[in-house]
Design a binder for these strands. Structure first.
Lengths: 227, 227
DNA sequence: AAATCTAGTTAACAATAAATTAATATTATA
DNA sequence: TATAATATTAATTTATTGTTAACTAGATTT
């Protein structure tokens, strides 16, 4: 079982806030990524796939509400905690934030220690649900074998069974070259006999469906995942 | 064991607060019980077995911290949400409350609407994790295993036993692909032998009865709930 | 008890998607 | 450049699932 650190994305346009919150979250053992506005928050979220996103309401480009709404409409972020921060201390925003799918709503000025406490409290509560060992993630590419789907930059790509299994095999060990024989025995099984071009065709379909260069041909040897 | 309307216990020594919070929680569909001090809160908690307990910090007999600590040391209240209320707006109490196992910490004066919002947000997040919940809700689809019926958009759809159990199995873990074998052993049992098309026919009946696309076929693998 | 339901299953066939092949083009490298 | 390996494309085959209707065994009603 992999024990990756819990990942948190902070989006705020005030560098001071980002810095102090990052510092405290890091100290508490979280892996932190940052964004300075709403658009960057969405971009980073897709790539970083955080377990929790802290959103300032008042941000340039897209405000916290808009980002929250977007995240909640995207299946990739189903299980992602969203914490909203704001200097506005009004009831309506508070309720709106929670109704848009926020998990916590905190008024500024906020003590970093309290923020960290609140976030741990949230994680403590959802802990049992967060134990995904069957999911690979390489940058903005998520390969989820429990759901049999791949998400690239927030977009779901449905691969057929063999395609998926082939991609999963390669991506589980990025950089390692798999011989054609290895691929055949792992994905097709030892007793199955298929023609020369079968692997190539499947590789091609993966390349076309994902639209990125993530599988490299090592001529005369085999293929490797390289992204 | 949880029963259907979500139960909330409020403990506060100020009758006015109790009254106004009860009113709003009731209106939001929760079943409410009250206690006027810490000792009564513990007693009532044992009897009433609430899903959520709202505790004022400053109470006679035993204060909110003490009650929280007691509840958290008792397995009966493992999954019970604890919300702490206080007029003291100091960082140390806030952190202490969360560290003692509180799920939320709210400063008075509190708007009842905000309180209700925060509590629904907590439940929304917790629901999927609680395996003992008998009623699933995914968007406008409610799957009630006590009554063996599903409600979609307010309209009741009666599924037969096998249909219901199949839907329930899938919907309990949305997105997860269930292999045909898993479905067979979970719904039909390990020793039952049925033909190839039995699952398909049941899936079809669910699809027809509900009239929505909520079960996705993953060809060569199985089925998943996806709505 | 006979008739009528109902859920569950099966079987035959249709429809669909996936996997494979085959033919040809392209590429890398000895 | 020659050639072996891989890429590409479309056609074909195969596997899997969808659909329908009929059948069976219990339950329920008359």
């Amino acid at each position: 079982m992999e024990t990756n650190p819990i990942k948190i994305l902070i989006a705020d346009d005030e560098p001071d806030i980002i810095e102090i919150i990052s510092f405290h979250l890091n100290k508490a053992g979280y892996e932190v990524e940052t964004a300075k506005d709403g658009s960057e928050a969405i971009e980073k979220a897709k790539q970083f796939n955080p377990d929790c996103i802290i959103l300032d309401i008042m941000m340039p480009k897209r405000n916290g509400f808009e980002v929250c709404e977007f995240l909640r409409s995207n299946k990739q972020f189903d299980k992602t905690l969203i914490v909203l921060l704001t200097a506005l201390n009004d009831e309506a925003s508070h309720i709106k934030g929670l109704e848009l799918g926020g998990d916590d709503f905190i008024n500024k000025p906020i003590s970093p220690k309290v923020l960290v406490s609140r976030i741990s409290a949230l994680f403590r509560r959802i802990q049992p649900a967060t134990s995904e060992t069957k999911t690979l993630q390489i940058k903005d590419l998520i390969i989820d074998s429990e759901q049999y789907k791949t998400i690239l930059n927030g977009v779901v790509h449905v691969l057929a069974k063999k395609e998926f299994e082939l991609l999963y095999l390669l991506a589980a060990q990025p950089g390692r070259v798999f011989l054609r024989n290895e691929i055949l025995s792992q994905v097709w099984g030892n007793d199955v006999i298929v023609g020369d071009r079968t692997i190539d065709v499947h590789i091609r379909k993966i390349r076309v469906k994902l639209g990125i260069e993530c599988i490299t041909t090592v001529k005369g040897v085999g293929y490797k995942f390289d992204y």
